[in-house]
Write a protein that binds this DNA or RNA. Structure first.
Lengths: 139, 139
DNA sequence: AGGGTAATTGCAACCGGGTTGCATTACAAA
DNA sequence: TTTGTAATGCAACCCGGTTGCAATTACCCT
């Protein structure tokens, strides 16, 4: 993905394009797996942790990416699809592979509806499946 | 719940009963909400953090309690039902109230089955619903 | 182009949950 | 009572996440 495309993606979400933001978005879009803050730190030796942190926060706020708590203790991030507003019906299942320790979006697997007890209201749902991914099972 | 009952619960899970363990289990069984390590620290000024930590770990290992990652950043714990082996079919949905910041087991709400893409195997599933609990909606 | 303002970035330090090593104490078996 | 093992307490550490502040950069207006 070239810079013009990246800038367009940023602008669509009302995020001012900067060099760091382009690079972070590039990594996030090109990675098949969800990416953590420390992943980014290691990818860009020159960029500061807090800059990267704030970049992720900005992206998340503007719904360019969503965060994933896969239970590993470190938050991961992945790009939202273009029309995503992070509403309950935009949500999908995430998968954590216990072998390669990577986390993926299962974009095609939406979260089943759940019947709450009376009196409970629903704002959002997270669903994380742990197991072994197809790649690791093959290998 | 008296000490004899607590000891029995511990022994059933092959955990040697000690004073600290009785107290921790007592708190865990009497609380309606899931309890964090720091919750325990504040409840027992005298008991050491690492002792409480190791107590929770022991309980979890022996499947007397299960841990809940509700996305708040701090792990919570709740007692398992007597016959629980923490298998996929023992799992239930957890609820995090965004108003009172408390986490509950919805023991009666089991986790729906989910269709994984081909090649993926399933070991466990976590499902956390965020919203407002019935208590907070009444108030 | 130049000046002023706001946003972004970098640095350093901090915070809190989780975790570990090691010394001490309690307990149980011989 | 002695001896070995498990539990506890204390201190320190690790790491992800977060913040304050200063330095830099981008942007807008004239």
């Amino acid at each position: 993905m070239n810079n013009r495309e990246l800038d367009k993606k940023l602008s669509l979400r009302k995020i001012k394009p900067t060099a760091v933001r382009e690079l972070v978005l590039k990594v996030l879009t090109e990675e098949k797996k969800a990416v953590s803050l420390s992943d980014l730190e290691h990818k860009f030796d020159y960029a500061d942790k807090s800059t990267l942190y704030r970049t992720l926060k900005t992206f998340e706020e503007k719904k360019l990416i969503h965060s994933i708590d896969d239970g590993s203790g470190t938050l991961k991030y992945a790009v939202c699809h273009d029309s995503c507003e992070c509403n309950p019906n935009d949500l999908h299942v995430h998968f954590y592979c216990t072998r390669c320790k990577q986390t993926f979006c299962l974009n095609e697997v939406s979260i089943p509806t759940v019947n709450l007890p009376v009196g409970f209201s629903l704002e959002s749902v997270t669903m994380v499946v742990k197991g072994v991914c197809s790649n690791c099972r093959k290998g």
